[in-house]
């Protein structure tokens, strides 16, 4: 969790830095009166690195992914619950009382 947050924060920082360097680069171009055709190569590398880190953090921080397939082990229903609202006590268990002398003590 902490690691994920750290990496995400780093990624955002890198993205901001990339934006800042692009602005700087454009200011420089204005001085030298050249046309802006694209960011320099190092900024593109920085940008993709930041994107990668941010994506990784976004996928790990919120938690584990749940399976959506109906036949996966987590989702496959193997037995129905008893209907507790319709539970009846007049059953054959009555004839075989538990041999337990447990009592509620207070």
């Amino acid at each position: 969790m902490g690691l994920g947050f750290g990496v995400g924060f780093l990624g955002v920082l890198i993205l901001f830095h990339a934006a800042y360097s692009t602005i700087q680069y454009r200011a420089l171009l204005k001085i030298t009166e050249e046309e802006f055709s694209g960011s320099p190569f190092s900024v593109v590398i920085e940008l993709s690195l930041g994107l990668l880190l941010c994506t990784w953090a976004a996928l790990t921080v919120p938690g584990k992914f749940l399976c959506i397939l109906p036949d996966s082990e987590e989702n496959r229903i193997v037995s129905l619950p008893v209907n507790p609202d319709f539970m009846i006590f007049n059953h054959r268990g009555k004839l075989f009382p538990l041999e337990m002398n447990a009592k509620l003590r207070h």
Binding site: M87, A102, K103, H106
Partner: peptide
């Protein structure tokens, strides 16, 4: 309490209900 009723341990069920 409900489990005790199911097992016919009515004393326990009664004590739980009273509590």
């Amino acid at each position: 309490a409900v489990a005790a009723m199911d097992c016919q341990s009515l004393d326990v069920a009664q004590d739980c209900t009273k509590a």
